[in-house]
Design a protein around this nucleic acid. Structure first.
Lengths: 71, 71
DNA sequence: TTTGACTGTCAAATATTTTTTACAAGAATT
DNA sequence: AATTCTTGTAAAAAATATTTGACAGTCAAA
């Protein structure tokens, strides 16, 4: 990836709110721990599929978890 | 891609509602015509970034355009 | 009947996301 | 002190998304 995507997310905040480890969240949505780390750190934006799974774990909508920074 | 993703979308419907060609939509969101075709046909799900851009073109939220099929 | 705009397909190449494996360090517990 | 859980890093490989270029069919308009 060239640059950080114009997408923000509250994954870490919500994950800690629910007392989940990165590994546990990864398992819940079907990705590895490293993927969770990369998403939390904003190193890349997840697939739409991962984004849906993540938001559903938190019983939220995608746009409650992920934000769009206008360019 | 192995299988179709569990994601539905109303891109074609909204695009036609707004009288946009596939090429015009692609240009508006910064992807090629072939990418728009593939998304409309559900051959693969877009990146979260493309999904945001698409929904904003239609002045809608992501979940107004893309649907999640529970598995 | 030809031209242009639109949609579709296909294959190969490139870019990005995700996995796998391994190693390291801090905090809490035993 | 040793163990366990958690987070972090890194690099290579694999999977998936996207691009590029080319060719083809339909339809409406000129």
């Amino acid at each position: 990836m060239a640059k950080r995507p114009p997408i923000t997310n509250r994954v870490r905040e919500l994950r800690e709110r629910d007392g989940l480890s990165q590994a546990a969240l990864g398992q819940a949505i079907g990705v590895t721990r490293q993927t969770v780390i990369a998403i939390e750190q904003g190193r890349y934006s997840p697939s739409l599929e991962s984004a849906f799974r993540i938001s559903r774990v938190f019983h939220a909508g995608i746009e409650d978890v992920f934000g769009w920074e206008e360019e």
